[in-house]
Design a protein around this nucleic acid. Structure first.
Lengths: 249, 249
DNA sequence: TGGATTGCTTGACCTTGATCAATTGCCTGC
DNA sequence: GCAGGCAATTGATCAAGGTCAAGCAATCCA
């Protein structure tokens, strides 16, 4: 599964052996390119990029309280962010798929406010944030992209804050995954759920049992087929209808 | 109530008749000052500030879909942001008190993703965002402050996303108001609830009836006294204990 | 001044999803 | 192959909070 059905937009540049060896999935490279290809600036941006990993399933990318120095874009794999409440129960804050950026919420306190865990084999692009900020001063496109990225995340968090039903939450989660995979060139209807049921439950603020029941009902209704972690969506439009009030666009 | 018990940090500068006539409650002025007082830059920042209002109770500051041009800091009053779901029910996204900044979540789409309504008499400082971005390129302190502000808001939204009990939500809300008023020099234990019960309920994802019941129970337990919209907190520590798992710091 | 409106409170009942408990199925290592 | 362990499923029960309905209190305005 998760086979690319069409090329990610920038893959060609990296694959052609571009000497900058630019990370094809990074939002930042898109930002720069969309502003006109400034070779000097791209070169500088390249200097502050570090490809790190692979992390293996269960490895921590960072932990709550670690000093913040860099943001990172996921190149491959899935990263789960979470915090533990005082009684030790896990609260999942988000799942980050290839092309998505982790660590933006750490800028404020200069420390990571949550833990980040690799759910499978993960490769990252690490960007020194201080250096990036300096560079952003000279590259309006980069600065604007950073502002946009941050702004985008403000709304994202509010997504699952509403008081939605278990069905709506579940549908919204699946549609969101579908959209995100699709945007990166993967199949929108057939992908692997890289997280455990309990992770989905913690993220959606449901009990694991409820997740199980909702998925079963969706399957019985012909919306999808789910077998262990392999998911196939049969009726995306109906799923989107269910998710509409949560996703709002 | 809401009497200032100590001077906001920067009030002196404005009140002393500083020729810049700088908005004393704006986070940005703090940013600049904390970086060393660069008079030229402050002058430029001043140019792009516009004091607007007063808005009266029920006036809209902006509406969902309006083109985004500026962010704004609240100088006086309370602003409520909200969206309407397809069935016309209101979802309250946040309340903004003096010193807080509205519009940061509009950067991404270049349109306001929500409505903003004055709950009482509101005065704002408006900052042209494009001009501000240009200025930020030359003022590292301003750029950093913008990044911090945006980053801060990412976490804030996640606050009420957890699956907390009605008591925890209510306590967290009141403690948050207390902290925010206190940070601006108002009493932390005695203030006016500027929003209706239904607004609090919509914000906390509770029914208005539940808000009413919880407040009554808190009062019966000696935590606070609430009479119409006047609130007095009697046992802030115990309220903070209740709120601990929600606020986490 | 009095009636209407709006916002808030209180009580009775019901629904959703959590909890508890038992079972199944998959995967790993011996 | 079999034992052990973990994740997922399923069923039975329970409780938190929502919904509905009624009453009350303050404000508005003729």
């Amino acid at each position: 599964m998760n086979r690319a059905v069409s090329r990610p937009r920038l893959a060609a540049i990296a694959d052609d052996g571009d000497e900058l060896n630019f990370c094809s999935t990074c939002a930042f490279s898109e930002a720069c390119l969309s502003q006109g290809y400034d070779k000097a600036a791209l070169g500088e941006l390249h200097v502050l990029v570090e490809h790190i990993g692979p992390f293996h399933e269960g490895d921590h990318v960072f932990r709550e309280g670690d000093p913040f120095t860099a943001i990172a874009a996921v190149r491959a794999g899935t990263v789960k962010t979470y915090v533990l409440d005082e009684s030790g129960r896990e609260q999942v804050l988000g799942f980050f798929l290839p092309g998505e950026v982790i660590g933006l919420n750490a800028i404020h306190h200069a420390r990571y406010p949550c833990n980040a865990l690799a759910l499978d084999t993960v490769v990252l692009c690490r960007f020194s944030f201080p250096k990036m900020a300096v560079l952003a001063s000279r590259m309006p496109g980069l600065q604007a992209q950073l502002f946009r990225l941050l702004s985008m995340d403000i709304g994202k968090a509010a997504l699952l804050a509403g008081d939605y039903s278990a069905d709506e939450r579940m549908a919204a989660f699946l549609v969101s995954l579908s959209l995100r995979y699709s945007a990166r060139g993967f199949s929108p209807t057939r992908f692997r759920l890289t997280m455990a049921r309990t992770d989905m439950a913690n993220y959606l603020r449901l009990a694991a049992e409820t997740v199980s029941r909702v998925l079963r009902r969706f399957q019985d209704d012909g919306l999808l087929t789910v077998e262990r972690r392999e998911l196939e969506i049969h009726d995306l439009p109906r799923l989107q209808t269910l998710a509409r009030s949560v996703l709002r666009d």
